[in-house]
Computed example of a mutant assay.
Amino acid sequence: MLRIGSVVMGVGDVARASAFWMRALDYVPREEPEDDWVVLVPAAGSGPQLSLGLSETPVQEYPRVHLDLYAGDAADQAAEVERLLALGARRVDWHDYPEDADFVVLADTEGNRFCVIDTGHS
Rank of each mutant, 00 (worst) to 15 (best):
A43D: 08
A43G: 01
A43M: 12
A43L: 08
A44D: 10
A44R: 04
G45E: 10
G45I: 10
S46F: 12
S46E: 14
G47Q: 02
G47F: 03
G47N: 07
G47I: 07
P48S: 03
P48G: 14
P48E: 08
P48Q: 12
P48N: 10
L50P: 01
L50S: 07
L50V: 04
L50R: 02
L50M: 02
S51Q: 06
S51M: 11
L52F: 00
L52T: 00
L52G: 05
G53V: 05
G53Q: 12
G53Y: 04
G53D: 03
G53R: 00
L54W: 13
L54E: 09
L54R: 13
L54G: 06
L54F: 15
S55K: 06
S55H: 12
S55N: 02
S55Y: 01
E56T: 14
E56F: 06
E56N: 12
E56Y: 08
T57Y: 11
T57R: 14
T57G: 06
P58I: 00
P58W: 07
V59R: 02
V59P: 00
V59W: 00
Q60S: 14
Q60P: 13
Q60G: 10
Q60N: 03
Q60M: 13
E61T: 14
E61W: 07
E61H: 11
Y62M: 09
Y62F: 11
Y62V: 07
P63V: 12
R64F: 05
R64D: 14
V65H: 13
H66C: 12
H66M: 12
H66R: 12
L67A: 13
L67M: 15
L67Q: 08
L69Y: 11
L69D: 04
L69C: 15
L69R: 05
L69T: 06
Y70R: 05
Y70A: 11
A71Q: 04
A71K: 04
G72F: 07
G72E: 12
G72N: 10
G72Y: 03
D73H: 01
D73Q: 02
A74R: 13
A75M: 10
D76R: 10
D76N: 06
